[in-house]
């Protein structure tokens, strides 16, 4: 009973095995990829392990406190920022091993040539609640 974030990067993750940009895929390959992702989410829901899935638009704005009585300072986007998050899935599973297994499965989504992308996903545990009995 622990929640994990499976984080997908546009940029910043080590290179995938099948590292061909999506705009170079065939339309059928794109459809197959999307179908795989949807099926994966459906299986998680059916298994009672799904919490959340979101995709993020690539453009972001950097925002900072501008000081007393001033509007927030904005900047960016910074093209050189090396890490760019594409989206995530949150799962609620019984063990770390199960989380690893699911992340591996998600990373097998097909890309160019219908072959698995072997994309690197970042798996991060959520902070849980403090246990009642600790002594």
């Amino acid at each position: 009973m622990a929640k994990y974030l499976m984080l997908k990067h546009y940029r910043g993750a080590p290179a995938a095995v099948n590292n061909v940009m999506m705009d170079q895929w065939t339309q059928d390959e794109i459809s197959a990829h999307i179908q795989y992702m949807n099926d994966f989410a459906d299986r998680l829901k059916e298994a009672g392990e799904f919490v959340d899935a979101q995709a993020l638009a690539p453009e972001g704005t950097w925002v900072q406190y501008g000081g007393e009585g001033r509007p927030p300072v904005t900047d960016g986007p910074f093209a050189e920022t090396k890490d760019l998050i594409a989206g995530w899935m949150v799962i609620d599973v019984d063990s770390y091993d199960r989380a690893l297994e699911l992340a591996g499965e998600l990373s097998a989504a097909p890309g160019a040539g219908g072959r698995p992308i072997h994309e690197w996903l970042e798996l991060r545990p959520f902070m849980g609640e403090a246990h009642t009995i600790t002594e």
């Binding site: 009973m1 929640k3 829901k45 059916e46 298994a47 009672g48 392990e49 799904f50 919490v51 959340d52 609620d92």
Partner: peptide, 15 residues
């Protein structure tokens, strides 16, 4: 109580 969507809990229980 376990911070998951109701649909997820429904599936967990029926499984």
């Amino acid at each position: 109580a376990y911070l998951v969507p109701e649909a997820t809990m429904t599936q967990r229980i029926s499984r």
